[in-house]
């Protein structure tokens, strides 16, 4: 969890031009006197336990039932949209360069690194189908799925929302996201599909019918959509 913080990371003050600052000792600064954890981008971080994640997911389910998935997705969307603005600021400051004049993959890798340091897992972006209007993101070691374990259904709605919100702001075009494979379904990693609403609706329908991530990839690449 990250909130704005007026205090600066002293490791950054010592070496402000350093880009490889994602190691634990560089990225976080623990201010024991004030009880505050600050990261390289001057955000305040809060440590959350696995119990917290379980409490959040199960508590929400108890409160709103099936709507908990949409709620988590919506929270993720808002987070992603806000983070896009935050990212734009720190990226320009760190690299003295506008987002729009930057290699897209480099930009995305740079965006995700703070999340990796914060424990949200490593990722891999597959942009091979970008020209067709969709792309895939793999998450290894999702904090939510890792915590909940094998529950037989996708659980990373927060991540799906985060990607939808962030990429919508980045490309200035409404995008949606769905998790089509999850560690909590017994898979080895989580896989997300990002694209326009028509594709996400189709993927959601196929998923409910029992399609696997591979089936969905195949059908999308063949240009199939719902009729």
């Amino acid at each position: 969890m990250v909130i704005a913080n007026p205090y600066q990371n002293t490791a950054k003050l010592k070496n402000p031009k350093k880009h490889n600052h994602y190691g634990f000792r560089d990225f976080f600064q623990f201010d024991t006197e004030r009880g505050i954890i600050t990261d390289w981008n001057d955000s305040q971080n809060v440590l959350a336990t696995e119990d917290f994640i379980i409490g959040l997911v199960e508590g929400l389910e108890e409160e709103v039932g099936d709507a908990s998935a949409v709620t988590m997705y919506t929270i993720g969307c808002e987070w992603g949209q806000k983070d896009a603005f935050f990212f734009e600021k720190w990226f320009q400051k760190e690299f003295d360069r506008n987002l729009r004049q930057t290699n897209l993959l480099f930009l995305l890798e740079t965006w995700w690194w703070p999340f990796t340091s914060q424990g949200w897992g490593r990722w891999e972006v597959d942009m091979g189908d970008r020209k067709q209007g969709f792309m895939f993101i793999n998450i290894f070691d999702s904090a939510i799925a890792r915590t909940l374990g094998d529950v037989g259904k996708p659980v990373c709605y927060l991540y799906a929302g985060l990607f939808a919100g962030f990429f919508t702001e980045m490309v200035k075009k409404q995008l949606s996201c769905i998790e089509i494979q999850c560690y909590s379904m017994g898979e080895t990693y989580c896989k997300f599909l990002l694209g326009g609403q028509d594709r996400i609706d189709a993927a959601s329908f196929w998923l409910n019918e029992g399609a696997t991530a591979k089936d969905i990839e195949k059908r999308l690449r063949a240009g199939e959509l719902l009729r």
Binding site: N20, F106, E109, T110
Partner: peptide, 18 residues
Amino acid sequence: DLLEERVLLWLQTIMRSF
């Protein structure tokens, strides 16, 4: 360990962008 944590894991993903 520090070489991997501070540089290589990061640079590996950054290099993949090119």
